[in-house]
Amino acid sequence: MLPTPDLSHLTSKDYRNVYEPAEDTFLLLDSLEEDQEYIKQLKPKICLEIGSGSGCVITFLEQIVGKNSVYLTTDINPEAAKITQRTGKQNKVKIDAINTDLVNGLLPRLENSVDIICFNPPYVVTETEDINSSLIAASWAGGINGREVTDRILPFIPKLLSPGGSFYLLLIQDNKPQEIVDIMESQYNLKYQLVKKRRAGREQQYVLKFSKI
């Protein structure tokens, strides 16, 4: 088993501004670990985590992929971008953090260029106006069906992915994952696979994988 990234440098003060890794984060880590043979044979050159928060997921991904890749992260929250950098340092992983909304500023330059994309979106069902009501709310408040932020990113995924590249997306049942599968398959011609599902309290969580053929 791969070790969980060292987050001992983060304090409760940091977690006032960024999402503290929880069951959903760990399901995403477990999914990447389960898929590690596939990920390694891709020999990724550019990996990207959207909304990196603490930086736990991208740091874990580096343990699978190794030094021969660039690790980009984005977060709309400047504090999260800083904390992601710190988590990289703590774990001796070079992370290039960018403070931006989703993937703004990366396209069209990175068209067909990103081998692995991970996204643990703000997926909680809330009112639309809750979405960016605070730095920390941006990490979990997902608006209608918990889908408003996720829906905005979907059209960019087929553009960013390199041929053969994959997108790992965490969702819960309330997000209507089947609708997302339909969109990704029929509109964007991506191949779908369910990597893992797990119940965490009342939440049924899924990690879906979409690959560019």
């Binding site: 400047p78 403070n99 931006t100 909304d101």
Partner: peptide, 8 residues
Amino acid sequence: DGIPNMLL
């Protein structure tokens, strides 16, 4: 702090 800000 070494981080580009691409927000608009």
